[in-house]
Structures are given as structure tokens and as C-alpha cells.
């Protein structure tokens, strides 16, 4: 009887929201028709579940006593200021981005949650409208099995345990980031006592809940800084490359024209790169369209990379 249950929980919510003081269980039972018709044991069980259900929805159901001396006389209430979304107003540009927000998630659970958040905003008098942004269609998806449990662990603050790079990690996830198609989580790795960032696709085991909800308080996370940490190391070296005209545009665009002797149909560019990354492999991906002129180490790396790859061709013959 789902409609009947919804009706009972709604009436419970309204009753506790309207109360100016804590309402005792006996009063609640006398007020709500459904509870009146139940025997004592069923009422206790049902009321307990209904109250938990409201809390799960985020409704602040407080328990307390109206009398500071006789604290055994407990009751319940929902303080309106903690329940209601405070007044909020947006300008036209903000309404446009909010107007797109319901279409972004490919994952059904999060799509429903975003939609539900927007419905609350509409109920608060906000009218999202994509306007000229209607031609934008950003989509966000999930392919990692660890995503659903990590998400739940973040929002409910549940510690988790999983295997990563061959080690068992005890972890309190604080934040999520999505960078270029990959999900990462940031939080406290209690097995090493330090904050750590983990890439969800590299989690090697099932993610197991290892505690109760609200077991920890996340530290404030500057997610922008976090994203920046995931960017490859900045350039610390410079190469001079000969790039075939009209080719390897992404490489040429990042560089500046340089003076050097190049074969016909090529132009020289100075390009910055990070020695920590695999710039030689990137250069090799352009095949005969890019030649390394400087520095000699990079030139040697590229030649060796190409020889090891092309060498296989001779072996096959």
C-alpha cells in the first residue's frame, strides 16, 4: 500500500513541521489516523521506520523534551528554518545554466537527483530556462563499477575499504572529480593516515562499506586545486622540432616558430615539454611529420622508440 504509506509519512511531516514544541509519540499516535488503527507493537515499529524514512530524505526530525527537568518526556519536531530551502534568486545567465542541468547526467540515479534538485528550485520560485544555451549538450557518464558505492559513501559519509595497486585501503571519501572521462575520489586514507587521490577505474576490488553513515566529517576540499593536481607536470624543457607544413597542428600551435635548418616542406618550432611525461612517445605518434632537432637526448629517445617499433617489422619478414 505505497500511497497509504506516502500519505501517512506526509501527514507525519506536516504534523511535526507545524508543531511549535516537541510532540510526544502518544500525541502523534492520536493525531494520525493510520497510527491510531495499529496495535502498540506495530505502531512502535511503523513510527520508527517512518521517522527514519524522513531522515533519509534529509528532513531534520529532531528529538527532545519540552521540559528541561523531566527529560524522559521526549517528543519530536521539525524546525522549519532547518527544513526549508532559504530564499534564493538567480539572474538570467544563471537561470540559463540551471536550465541545462537536468540533461547532463547519463547515469539514471544522478539524473533523477539533479531533476529533483531543480524541481525544488522551481518550487522555490526559480524558473530555469536554457535560452541560447539550448545548443549546448554536455553529457557526463560513468563506466566505473566503483562509482555508485563511492558516491554513496561520500554523500552518507560512510568509510569504505578496497584494493588499489595491490594494497588494501581503508578510506574516507570526501570529494569526487571528473577529469577527461575519468572519475577520481579524494579523501583520507586511514591506512596511511594521509589524504589520497584514487582513480576509480583502478580500484581492483569491490568497494565494501566499512562503517556506519555519518562516521566522519570531511575536511573542506578545494576541488579546483585538486583538478589542477591531476594535470600533467608543467613544461621544464624545450625542444626544437621540424614539423611538416599543415601537419601535427596541435603540436605546432603550442610552439613558437624557430630558426633551424629543416628539410623542404617543413618549418621549425620551439616547443616546451615536461621531461616527466613521455614527450618522445607523443612525437613518435606523428611519424614522419615531426623530426626532433634538439635536444640530443630527446632525439635519441625518439630514434630508439621508433627503431624498437619498426624493428619488429624486420623480424616478421
Amino acid at each position: 500500500m505505497a500511497p497509504r504509506k506516502s500519505e501517512r509519512i506526509m501527514n507525519l511531516a506536516i504534523c511535526l513541521l507545524m508543531a511549535r514544541r516537541y510532540v510526544s509519540k502518544a500525541e502523534i499516535r492520536s493525531i494520525i489516523a493510520d497510527y491510531r488503527d495499529m496495535n502498540d507493537a506495530t505502531f512502535e515499529r511503523t513510527f520508527g521506520r517512518d521517522k527514519d524514512e524522513l531522515r533519509r530524505l534529509g528532513v531534520p526530525v529532531l528529538m527532545g523534551s519540552n521540559d528541561e527537568y523531566f527529560t524522559e518526556d521526549v517528543g519530536y519536531r521539525i524546525p522549519r528554518k532547518d527544513f526549508e530551502l532559504p530564499p534564493i534568486e538567480f539572474d538570467a545567465a544563471e537561470l540559463a545554466v540551471l536550465g541545462l542541468a537536468s540533461q547532463v547526467w547519463d547515469e539514471a540515479t544522478q539524473a533523477d537527483q539533479a531533476k529533483s534538485a531543480l524541481a525544488k528550485l522551481r518550487a522555490a520560485g526559480v524558473d530555469p530556462d536554457p535560452g541560447r544555451l539550448a545548443s549546448l549538450a554536455p553529457r557526463i557518464g560513468v563506466k566505473e563499477a566503483a562509482f555508485a558505492p563511492i558516491w554513496q559513501a561520500i554523500t552518507a559519509r560512510i568509510p569504505v575499504s578496497f584494493a588499489y595497486r595491490g594494497k588494501r585501503r581503508e578510506y574516507q571519501p570526501w570529494a569526487l572529480t571528473y577529469r577527461r572521462g575519468a572519475w577520481y575520489t579524494y579523501g583520507m586514507d586511514t591506512s596511511v593516515g594521509e589524504p589520497r587521490i584514487y582513480r576509480l577505474i583502478r580500484i581492483e576490488s569491490e568497494v565494501v562499506f566499512a562503517g556506519e553513515p555519518d562516521s566522519f566529517t570531511p575536511e573542506p576540499v578545494d576541488t579546483r586545486t585538486l583538478i589542477a593536481q591531476l594535470e600533467p607536470a608543467g613544461p621544464d624543457s624545450q625542444a626544437v622540432l621540424a614539423i611538416r607544413l599543415g601537419r601535427a597542428g596541435t603540436l605546432a600551435r603550442g610552439g613558437t616558430p624557430a630558426q633551424a635548418a629543416v628539410p623542404p616542406g617543413f618549418a621549425a618550432y620551439a616547443v616546451e615539454y615536461s621531461s616527466a611525461g613521455d614527450f618522445a612517445a607523443e612525437v613518435c605518434s606523428f611519424g614522419p611529420d615531426v623530426i626532433v632537432l634538439e635536444p640530443p637526448e630527446l632525439r635519441a629517445q625518439v630514434v630508439s622508440h621508433l627503431r624498437r617499433f619498426a624493428g619488429g617489422a624486420d623480424d616478421d619478414k
Binding site: 506536516i14 513541521l17 507545524m18 530524505l57 534529509g58 528532513v59 532547518d82 527544513f83 526549508e84 530551502l85 545554466v97 540551471l98 541545462l100 542541468a101 537536468s102 547532463v104 547526467w105 544522478q110 539524473a111 537527483q113 539533479a114 529533483s116 534538485a117 531543480l118 524541481a119 525544488k120 528550485l121 518550487a123 522555490a124 544555451l133 549546448l136 554536455p138 553529457r139 557526463i140 558516491w151 561520500i154 554523500t155 552518507a156 569526487l176 571528473y178
Partner: peptide
């Protein structure tokens, strides 16, 4: 007696943030 919506749940808030950031 029910003239304003409830606050966001943590799940709603996070889903909305990710959607907005993607935009």
C-alpha cells in the same frame, strides 16, 4: 503550511554541482 521546498539532500546537491560544472 507547506509553502517552501525542502533543502537539498547531499545526493541532489552533488548531482547538481557536477551537472553545473560540466556545463
Amino acid at each position: 503550511f507547506l509553502s517552501r521546498p525542502m533543502r537539498f539532500t547531499p545526493d541532489e546537491a552533488m548531482s547538481l554541482i557536477v551537472a553545473l560544472e560540466s556545463i
